[in-house]
Computed example of a mutant assay.
Amino acid sequence: MSAHPLHVAVIVASTREGRFGPTVAAWFAGEAGGRTDLDVEVVDLAEPSTVTKKLAAADVFVVVTPEYNHSYPAPLKAVIDNHFREWLAKPVGFVSYGGLSGGLRAVEHLRPVFAELHAVTVRDTVSFHGSRACFGPDGRPLDPAVSGAAARVLLDRLTWWGLTLRDAHRARPYVTA
């Protein structure tokens, strides 16, 4: 691990019974955890007592979200709206999953929400279309080359933004008013 790795919060956005989010989040956390420049922690919104502390510690966020009714889950909206400083001038990446759209409509709804919080969303995403059919019984993608390549691109972009913004935060506070 590098001397000062970025702390990455991988957020499991769904809290529904029978949800697939923990499977996708565990896979992505494993991909990120293989890097020496990142320290990864899963933040499960189904465990609300630990959310604020874990968000506050993060340098970088990855939201693992399904698409519900062409948008993102209500528990994620509540967590976003109940926090401000945690997101401020930090990068946010997305791993989405779902049916035909692979959760991409949820991601597109999240981008302006995070922009309002002065967070920087990363263009590159990881998306699983027909997500349950994309993973084997071991919780790993059936096509690890494609999903792994997408994860590496996302992590590279998030790391660049994370280091840049963390250095900027240390040099001078972000102006909020």
Score class of each variant (00 low, 15 high):
G148Y: 00
L165F: 04
K53F: 02
G103C: 05
T15D: 06
G148D: 10
V95K: 12
V126T: 02
R19T: 10
V42P: 03
V8S: 08
A3E: 15
A58S: 11
D39Q: 14
L155N: 01
A133D: 12
G99W: 04
P144F: 04
V107G: 02
P66N: 14
S131F: 05
E86Y: 02
Y68V: 14
V92Y: 00
V12Y: 07
H109T: 10
D156R: 09
V153P: 00
L45R: 03
A119V: 02
E31P: 05
W161L: 12
N69Q: 15
R123M: 15
G21I: 01
V10D: 07
L117Q: 11
H83V: 09
S127Y: 04
P144K: 06
S2M: 10
G139Q: 11
K90G: 01
F61P: 00
R111K: 13
E67F: 05
V10E: 05
G93V: 01
F114V: 00
E67K: 03
G139N: 05
G139H: 04
F94P: 00
R85W: 13
G21L: 09
F20A: 06
T50W: 04
L110H: 01
K77L: 12
R105F: 02
L163K: 15
V153W: 02
H83T: 10
T121W: 14
A74D: 14
L165Q: 00
W161N: 11
R123V: 04
L163F: 14
V126Y: 03
G98C: 11
V175I: 13
A115F: 07
A133T: 14
S131K: 11
G130H: 09
P66R: 13
A26Y: 03
P66Q: 14
A25L: 07
L88F: 05
T15F: 06
R35A: 06
G30P: 03
Y72W: 13
